[in-house]
Structure formats: structure tokens, C-alpha cells
Design a binder for these strands. Structure first.
Length: 269
DNA sequence: TTCCAGGCGTATC
DNA sequence: GATACGCATGGA
């Protein structure tokens, strides 16, 4: 990894990494863009650690970040040890994927916290991204952090009314109770094959095929997981009527990220 | 006003 | 197993 210390900051030179594309593409909901001149800046959290990160045309700066935190936490979170160039080279065999990678080649898969991903993607169902962010925002400011399963397990639909999460509140509570009681554990799911993991996740109320797939991909780094939402459904119908290419299956979830961004924002699609 | 959003539970066949 | 419908909320 090409990085250096600069005072309290870490300066990173990394190809295939664009902050806007990575932090504002609907995979994570707690990053806020900070208006700054000449650089792109975001503030966000992982494992209750706050990070201010910015990017100009030459490098990415991790502000007020120790080398330990950078190497042990953030390089993993931003998946810096994965070679996205070679992944995109594999994807480029397919015309649509090639276009999607060229459109936004700086997307990286964030290796998020399991519980936060589970809770966030339960909230995401039949919802739009700005409102998902709003609900999670209210949640985090109410508890002064992203609440643990234990914190949420004792709530009721009534006490969660401040979230304005609609019918999803009862699902959040069910997930919290199953995780807080130890009935469902991250560790157990990590050690399962993917179909078994899907079954366990779907035993949570409000977790169906799509949310389970998002938890596997974003919360457990199962890169073969392939979430299909309304946008990806359109991609599949339009470009892959005979199925998604087999050669990409091991990293289908990462391919899906490029396609999701492409179908939503590219003009010519 | 109606439609839609990173879907799912339930009823019905 | 497949299909139809309701669901909370808020922006377009």
C-alpha cells in the first residue's frame, strides 16, 4: 500500500478509489459530505470511530488517524488490499459491466459491521436512500451512536416512533432481539455456507432475499452475494435476459455495485 | 393527487 | 411455487 504519515494524517495513493462513488452509492448510509473547496470531504463512522476523509486529484487523506488505526481498521473497511483493477479487468469481458466500470470505476466495497448492515438494510426495504439516511440519522443521534442490538432489544414499536420508520420498526426490534439473545450470532453465520447463512438471516422478520443478500455482501463480505433490488432487476431484464455471466459469479456482489450505480446515474442507460 | 423507493409478510390458489 | 395486495413515510 502506497501511504505515508503527514503529521496526524495518513496520505494514501490508491487507484480505483473515488470517495463520492464509494461513500454515496447506497451501500452505507452514515457518510456525510462536508462542503469544502477543491477537495471532496466526508465524515462518517465505523465501529463508533469517527473519520474525516478527503480526496483531491492526487491522494486521499485520512485526517487525525494513527498508523495503527489506518492499518488495522480503515484499510480493511475500505478493502484496500483487494486489487480492483484486476477485478474490473475480469468484468470487462462483458460489455455492460465494462461500461459500468468505466462509468464509475472508483467504487469499492465497504466491509461494514454486521449488525449495522443488518439493521440498515432492514430499514432500506421499500424505501429511498435519502429517507433511509434520515431514519438512521435519527437513530444514531437518539442513542448517540449506532445502537447495539442490546439497546434496541428492549424498545417497542411505540418507543421507536421517533424514528418514523413506519412498518419497519417491528422488524428492527425482532432483529435486535434475535441478535441480543444470542439466537443469531455473527460468528455462527460467518462459519456457514452461503445458503445456510441465507436461511438463518431470513428467519428474522423483515429479512427476505434482498436484505439477506445485502447483509451477506456488506456486513459479511461475501462477494458472491448478489442483491437484486428494483434497479438491478431492470439491469437484469434489459442486459442479462439469459442470466448473469458465470465468470463474474465469485465477485457478483462487487459487479452489482458498479451496475447499480450505472443504471441509476448514467444518462445513456 | 398519484406514484415510487436498495421488499417483505400474508393470504390464496 | 406463484401471484396479489397491503404496508408507513415523504419526496417528486
Amino acid at each position: 500500500m502506497d501511504y505515508k504519515k503527514n503529521g496526524n494524517d495518513i496520505i494514501l495513493k490508491q487507484p480505483d478509489f473515488d470517495l463520492d462513488q464509494t461513500l454515496d452509492c447506497g451501500q452505507a448510509f452514515r457518510w456525510k459530505k462536508i462542503p469544502t473547496e477543491n477537495v471532496t470531504t466526508y465524515e462518517g463512522f465505523f465501529l463508533n470511530r469517527k473519520l474525516l476523509i478527503s480526496q483531491d486529484n492526487s491522494a486521499i487523506t485520512f485526517h487525525n488517524t494513527s498508523e495503527d488505526d489506518f492499518l488495522n481498521i480503515w484499510s480493511d473497511y475500505f478493502d484496500l488490499n483487494t486489487d480492483y483493477s484486476s477485478l474490473k479487468h475480469i468484468f470487462s469481458q462483458d460489455e455492460t459491466l465494462n461500461k459500468a466500470c468505466n462509468f464509475a470505476g472508483g467504487i469499492r466495497l465497504l466491509k461494514q459491521d454486521f449488525w449495522e448492515a443488518l439493521c440498515s438494510f432492514i430499514i432500506s426495504q421499500n424505501n429511498n436512500i435519502p429517507r433511509i439516511k434520515g431514519i438512521i440519522d435519527r437513530m444514531c443521534s437518539h442513542y448517540d451512536c449506532f445502537p447495539t442490538a442490546q439497546m434496541l432489544a428492549n424498545e417497542t414499536v411505540e418507543t421507536l416512533e421517533f424514528l418514523r420508520s413506519g412498518f419497519r420498526a417491528k422488524y428492527i426490534i425482532d432483529a435486535a432481539q434475535k441478535v441480543a439473545s444470542g439466537l443469531i450470532t455473527e460468528n455462527a453465520i460467518r462459519n456457514m455456507d452461503i445458503s445456510q447463512a441465507r436461511t438463518v438471516l431470513k428467519s428474522i422478520k423483515g429479512v427476505g432475499p434482498k436484505v439477506a443478500e445485502c447483509v451477506l455482501l456488506y456486513g459479511l463480505y461475501r462477494t458472491e452475494a448478489f442483491p437484486v433490488d428494483v434497479w438491478i432487476k431492470r439491469v437484469l431484464e434489459k442486459y442479462y435476459p439469459c442470466g448473469f455471466p458465470e465468470f463474474a459469479s465469485q465477485y457478483a456482489g462487487i459487479a452489482q455495485q458498479y451496475l447499480f450505480h450505472y443504471i441509476r446515474f448514467a444518462d445513456e442507460v
